[in-house]
Design a protein around this nucleic acid. Structure first.
Lengths: 119, 119
DNA sequence: AAAAAAGTACGCGAATCGAGAACGATATAT
DNA sequence: ATATATCGTTCTCGATTCGCGTACTTTTTT
């Protein structure tokens, strides 16, 4: 948490005060989050995630991806997201076909390398 | 929050008591989360996400599938999201292939229909 | 019908959150 | 060197509210 917040803030070149202002909380409050002295409420945490354009899971160190990778195979079973291309929603069939396409392509590439190691 | 928790729990056929026991908290405490009477601490929320094998963002309804269609062509220029297949991140090349793949397929389908109307 | 389990709602003590203030460190200006 | 301003850290205090126990209603089981 500490590390993630500090990293995201400094990457943007913001001071504690600037960040707190954008979140509409006191400087000491936000500083408490970064130092680990305080934990934000869920509401504040969500605002922070919005401000830094990231996820709760990343802020709390539950994932290494600042933006959660969307697992396409999982979308078929539980569509948490919808995808579109050229403004038109992607159909399940299109998704299935593409997943197969990528899998085959990856296998071919692995064979070309003469190895079975993962990329 | 309420809806997500209730949905996940019932999908597993667990009672409030069973769920609370697994989280090592009181039944009334967990019930408070589902009813909206209480909000969990971040620690409890993380445990809940682990128990239900999901993310904080999903629990809190931050990844609502009904609203946010992700335009894949936009991801190439500003990667606000990352995609994966079989747990492996999709490369930009693969994404380009994905988009071309779908576009071609859509054109073929349109021609087959003898129409140029949008689906 | 009785008993057990499931779900709901509330009061209370304890934990802790958020704001403000005080502090030292650093940088800039006079 | 002194003054001023900004930055980051840490503390206290009041207010919020969390988590548990408990009691209650509803549903299920025997």
């Amino acid at each position: 948490m500490r590390e993630r917040l500090s990293e995201l803030r400094k990457k943007r070149g913001w001071s504690l005060q600037e960040t707190a202002d954008q979140l509409d909380i006191a400087k000491s409050t936000y500083a408490g989050y970064e130092s680990g002295y305080r934990e934000p409420s869920i509401r504040s945490l969500s605002q922070i995630a919005d401000l830094f354009d990231t996820t709760l899971d990343y802020l709390l160190g539950r994932t290494d991806n600042s933006l959660d990778a969307i697992e396409l195979t999982g979308l078929l079973k539980s569509p948490r997201h919808r995808l579109s291309i050229d403004g038109k929603l992607l159909s399940p069939d299109e998704l299935v076909d593409f997943i197969s396409f990528v899998r085959v392509k990856r296998m071919v590439k692995t064979e070309e390398m003469g190895e079975d190691q993962e990329g």
